[in-house]
Design a protein around this nucleic acid. Structure first.
Length: 806
RNA sequence: GCGGAAGUGGCGGAAUGGCAGACGCGCAUGGUUCAGGUCCAUGUGUUGGCAACAACAUGAGGGUUCAAGUCCCUUCUUCCGCACCA
C-alpha cells in the first residue's frame, strides 16, 4: 500500500529539486522554437498574495509547462511592479524607507509564489525600482521627449485631494480616486504629457493584426473613440472671425438653428467688448469651473446655459443669422469646443432648445413615415432622408454627408475630420516613490533631457516622503539635488522634481525579460528578435484601457524608433475572471470574506489550490470561492495518488480503455489551449473513475494520466513518477500523443427518436450503412410505430435516428 | 442612454443545432470504523406512479427546424465598463 499523500514534504522536495536543476530557465539558444508566455507582474503590496493571483498564474503555468513538454524553449518570467503609492504611504506612516518596504514585500510575494510551484524563470526576475531597470524606463522617456512626444503643459488636471497627486483620466473612477476613493477636483498644474493621441490610429488598426479576446478589442476601440465627421466654419456676423465646429452629422447643416460654445471658449474673451452680458457669462464660467467633470456629467439631465448677447453666427448654407449660446454640455477638450446645434436631430440639442425656447426645424425625415420632431429629436441614420435642405434634399444621410463635405471643401468653409475621445496621457506625479524624470529646466535652453551617459538618474535619499500641500513633489525640497547645471549650455538649471506614474515601468517590462541584465541597452536586438512578440499574455480586464493600451503605445513608438522589431508587443491576449468570496461578493477585508492562499497551501497543498482554481469554473468568468470545492479537488488528487495500489505492470493501454485514453489526451490537450481548464480536469476525473470501476490501471495508462495532469499539479505527479520507478523527471517528458483514429469507438450507442423524442437506444457499428441503421431503429420502436404513417426518416451518423410520423 | 457579459438541478458548473444536467460539491442509503472524520458502493432535475413508465423542464413570450440551452425576433433581470465625445 502507498503511504497517505503528504503534500508538505512532497511539495518542498520538488520545489528544491527544480531550483537546483534550474528546471525552468529559458535557454539563450536562439535556434530552438520559442514560446513566450506572460502574466502581469504583481504590485508587491503589504497584504501579500491574494487567491485571485494564482488563477492567471496557474493557467499560463499550465501552458508553459505543456509547451516545454512539446519541445519549445519557453520563457515564463516573473517580476515586480514595485513603484507606487501604497508603498509610499506605508513608508510615511511607519517611517521606513520605501525601498525597505518594497524589499520586504517582494520577499513575501516571492516565497508565496515559490510555494505554489510555478515554473517561472527566476534568473530573469526584474524589479521596476531597481536603478538597472529604471535606467531604461528613463531612456525611453528621454527618447519620447527627443521625438516631441513628451511635453509639459499647463492644464487642468484631476487632482486627488487625499493622495495630493495628479491622476490620469483612466485613474478617476466615478469622480473619485481609483486608489483611495477620495474626491477628485480640477486643478491647474504644469504636467508632463505623453502624446498617446499621436498613436490613436495605429493603436486601433493594430488590433486587426492580433489575437485578443473580442471584448478587449471592443473596449480599446471604444476608449480611443475614433469618430469621423467634418469641421465647418460659421462666420461671426460683423467680424472677420469664424467659429469652427466639429460635427458627425454635417448632412443636418440646414437644420442648425443656433450654436453652443464651451464656457472656456477663447472667443468669449476675445469679443468681450461686444458681448452685452459678459458678466453673466463670466459668472456661468466660474460656476462650471467649480464643478468637477463628474458633477458636470451627473447633472447632465438638466441643461444650463447663457445666451451670448451681442454675437451672432451665420449658417453657411442658409445664410441666416443664428444665436450663440454658452453651455457646459459642450466640452473644450473635445472637437473645437464649439458645436452647431441641430435640435431636430440631436437629443442633447433638442433638450436644450426645448428648455430655452429655441427653434426646432426638420431637415431629415423617416423614409416613408411621419415623424414629429416636436415630440423628440429624430436621430435614426439608417432610415433618414434629407428634406428642406437645398441641394441635398432627397438624399440618404450617408449620401448627403458625402455631398456636403464636397460642397464645404469646394467653398473652403470646411473639411472632413477625424476626432478621438482619447486624451494625451498625464505622465507626472508629485510623489517620491517613482522614476525621476530625466529632464532639467534651464532658463536659457528651456527643457533639456539628460544625456544618455547620465542615466540612470538615481532617486535621491530624502528626509521626508510626505507630499506637499502646494502640490510639489517631496523632491522639490532637496535644493542641492534640484540645482544642477544645464547639459546644453552649462548654465544653472533645475531638475524636474515630479516622478513618473506607476504605469511607466510596466509599459515595457516584457522587453526586459528577454535580456534582463543588459547594461548597454534595454535588451539586445538579438534577444528581442528571438523572443518577441509575447505569444500569450494574460491579464485583468481592468488594465484594458490602462496598462495594456499604454504598453502597446510605448511598443509602437519603440518600433518606429527601430528599437524593437515587431509592431505589436502581444500576439494573444486573454483575460481571467475574478475570484469572489464564498458569498459571491468581491473579496475584501471589510466584508470579511478574504481567503489567504497560504492557508490553502498549508491545509490542502499547492497542487490542490492550483487544481481547484482551474476547476472552479469558466476561466474568463467570475467565480465564487468554495472550501468544499477545494476539498473535492484534494480528494481527486488523493485518488490519483492511490492509483498506485491498483497499478499493474502491463504496458500499453488496455483494450477496453484505449478509446477513452486517446479521447482524454485529445480533450485535455485542446482544452488547455482554449482556456477550458475546468473541463480538462473533469475529463481526467472521469478517466480515473473508469480506472477505479475496473479496479486496475496499467503502468502506461497511469503514466499518461500523470503526464497530462503534471502542468496542473506538478508536485504530486513528479512524486508519483519517481515512486513508480520511471526514469528522469516528469517535467522532461514528451507531451502525450493521441491517434485521431483511436478516439472513436467502433460500436456506438445511438438514440432512436419519434418526432424528436427519444424512445429507445440502439447499439450499432459506426460503419453500418444508413438504411441498415434506420431499419434497426424502426425495429426497436416497432410497437410505437403501429398505426402511424412515416413521413420522414433521418439518420445523423453515430448519433441519432429520428422517425417523423403523423 | 451607449457598449460588453451572464441568466440551466439544492450549489459550482457541462453540452461542434442531434439522448440537457458531463465533472465536482452537497444530500440520502448501505459498508468500513469503538466513535467522529476519512475511505468505499449505490442513488440523487421536477411532478405523478409500488413499478415499468409518462409528462414537464435551460429567465419570459413568439418563430425557424425532423430536432433548439444553442439560430432568429420581442421582452425581463443581474453584473461590469463608459457616460453630454457633438
Amino acid at each position: 500500500m502507498s503511504e497517505v499523500y503528504n503534500h508538505h514534504a512532497v511539495e518542498k522536495k520538488w520545489q528544491k529539486v527544480w531550483d537546483d536543476e534550474k528546471a525552468f530557465a529559458a535557454k539563450n539558444d536562439y535556434t530552438k522554437p520559442k514560446y513566450y508566455a506572460l502574466v502581469e507582474f504583481p504590485y508587491p503590496s503589504g497584504q501579500g498574495l491574494h487567491v485571485g493571483h494564482p488563477r492567471p498564474y496557474t493557467a499560463l503555468d499550465i501552458v508553459a509547462r505543456k509547451r516545454r513538454m512539446q519541445g519549445y524553449n519557453v520563457l515564463y518570467p516573473m517580476g515586480w511592479d514595485a513603484f507606487g503609492l501604497p508603498t509610499e504611504n506605508y513608508a510615511i506612516k511607519n517611517h521606513i524607507h520605501p525601498k525597505i518596504v518594497t524589499e520586504n514585500n517582494v520577499k513575501r510575494f516571492k516565497d508565496q509564489l515559490h510555494s505554489l510551484g510555478y515554473s517561472f524563470d527566476w534568473d530573469r526576475e526584474i524589479n521596476t525600482t531597481d536603478p538597472g531597470y529604471y535606467h531604461w524606463t528613463q531612456w525611453i522617456f528621454r527618447k519620447l521627449f527627443e521625438e516631441g512626444l513628451a511635453y509639459k503643459k499647463e492644464m487642468p488636471i484631476n487632482w486627488c485631494t487625499s493622495c495630493k497627486v495628479g491622476l490620469a483620466n483612466e485613474e478617476v473612477v466615478n469622480g473619485v480616486c481609483e486608489r483611495c476613493g477620495s474626491p477628485v477636483v480640477r486643478k491647474v498644474k504644469s504636467e508632463w504629457m505623453l502624446k498617446i493621441t499621436e498613436y490613436a490610429d495605429k493603436l486601433i488598426d493594430g488590433l486587426d493584426t492580433v489575437d485578443y479576446i473580442e471584448r478587449v478589442k471592443v473596449s480599446q476601440k471604444n476608449w480611443i473613440g475614433r469618430s469621423t465627421g467634418a469641421e465647418v466654419d460659421f462666420a461671426i456676423a460683423g467680424t472677420e472671425d469664424k467659429l469652427t465646429v466639429y460635427t458627425t452629422r454635417c448632412d443636418t447643416l440646414f437644420g442648425a438653428t443656433y450654436m453652443v460654445v464651451s464656457p472656456e471658449h477663447p472667443y468669449l474673451d476675445k469679443y468681450k467688448d461686444r458681448i452685452n452680458n459678459f458678466d453673466a457669462i463670466l459668472a456661468y464660467r466660474e460656476e462650471a469651473a467649480k464643478k468637477s467633470d463628474f458633477e458636470r456629467s451627473e447633472l447632465a439631465k438638466d441643461k444650463t446655459g447663457v445666451c451670448v448677447d451681442g454675437l451672432l453666427a451665420i449658417n453657411p448654407v442658409t445664410d441666416e443669422e443664428i444665436p450663440i449660446w454658452v453651455s457646459d454640455y459642450v466640452l473644450m477638450s473635445y472637437g473645437t469646443g464649439a458645436i452647431m446645434a441641430v435640435p431636430g436631430h440631436d437629443d442633447r440639442d433638442w433638450e436644450f432648445a426645448k428648455k430655452f425656447g429655441l427653434p426646432i426645424i426638420q431637415v431629415v425625415a423617416k423614409d416613408g413615415e411621419e415623424v414629429d420632431i416636436n415630440e423628440a429629436a429624430f436621430t435614426d441614420v439608417a432610415t433618414g432622408v434629407l428634406v428642406n435642405s437645398g441641394f441635398i434634399t432627397g438624399l440618404s444621410v450617408e449620401d448627403a454627408k458625402t455631398k456636403m463635405i464636397e460642397f464645404l471643401e469646394e467653398k473652403k468653409i470646411g473639411h472632413a475630420k477625424v476626432n478621438y475621445k482619447l486624451r494625451d496621457w498625464v505622465f507626472s506625479r508629485q510623489r517620491y516613490w517613482g522614476e525621476p524624470i530625466p529632464i532639467v529646466h534651464c532658463d536659457k535652453c528651456g527643457f533639456v533631457s539628460l544625456p544618455e551617459s547620465e542615466l540612470p538618474l538615481l532617486l535621491p535619499e530624502v528626509e521626508s516622503y510626505e507630499p506637499t500641500d502646494n502640490g510639489e513633489s517631496p523632491l522639490a525640497a532637496m535644493t542641492d539635488w534640484v540645482n544642477t547645471t544645464c547639459p546644453c549650455c552649462g548654465g544653472p538649471a533645475k531638475r524636474e522634481t515630479d516622478t513618473m506614474p506607476q504605469w511607466a515601468g510596466s509599459s515595457w517590462y516584457f522587453l526586459r525579460y528577454c535580456d534582463p541584465t543588459n547594461d548597454k541597452e534595454l535588451a539586445s536586438k538579438e534577444a528581442l528578435k528571438y523572443w518577441m512578440p509575447v505569444d500569450w499574455y494574460n491579464g485583468g480586464m481592468e488594465h484594458t484601457t490602462l496598462h495594456l493600451l499604454y504598453s502597446r503605445f510605448w511598443h509602437k513608438f519603440l518600433y518606429d524608433q527601430g528599437v524593437v522589431t515587431t509592431p505589436e508587443p502581444y500576439q494573444k491576449r486573454t483575460s481571467h475572471g475574478m475570484i469572489l468570496g464564498e458569498n459571491g461578493e468581491k473579496m475584501s477585508k471589510s466584508r470579511g470574506n478574504v481567503v489567504n492562499p497560504d492557508d490553502i497551501v498549508r491545509d490542502y497543498g499547492a497542487d490542490t489550490l492550483r487544481t481547484y482554481e482551474m476547476f472552479i469554473g469558466a476561466f474568463d468568468l467570475a467565480a465564487s470561492w468554495s472550501e468544499d470545492g477545494v476539498k473535492g479537488c484534494r480528494r481527486f488528487l488523493d485518488r490519483v495518488w492511490k492509483l498506485q495500489d491498483i497499478m499493474t505492470q502491463d504496458t500499453g493501454y488496455s483494450k477496453d480503455l484505449e478509446v477513452l485514453m486517446h479521447q482524454t489526451i485529445q480533450k485535455v490537450s485542446n482544452d488547455f489551449e482554449n482556456l477550458k481548464y475546468n473541463t480538462a480536469i473533469a475529463a481526467m476525473m472521469a478517466l480515473i473513475n473508469e480506472f477505479y470501476k475496473k479496479n486496475s490501471v496499467t503502468r502506461d495508462e497511469y503514466k499518461t494520466l500523470i503526464t497530462l495532469l503534471n502542468p496542473v499539479a506538478p508536485h504530486i505527479t513528479e512524486e508519483i513518477w519517481e515512486a513508480i520507478g520511471c526514469e528522469g523527471r516528469i517535467y522532461q517528458q514528451k507531451w502525450p500523443e493521441f491517434d485521431p483514429a483511436k478516439t472513436v469507438m467502433s460500436t456506438v450507442e445511438i438514440a432512436v427518436q419519434i418526432n424528436g423524442k427519444v424512445k429507445a437506444t440502439l447499439e450499432i457499428d459506426k460503419n453500418d450503412p444508413k438504411e441498415q441503421v434506420i431499419e434497426a431503429g424502426k425495429k426497436v420502436i416497432a410497437d410505437k410505430l403501429e398505426g402511424k404513417s412515416i413521413v420522414k426518416e433521418i439518420y445523423v451518423p453515430g448519433r441519432i435516428v429520428n422517425i417523423v410520423v403523423k
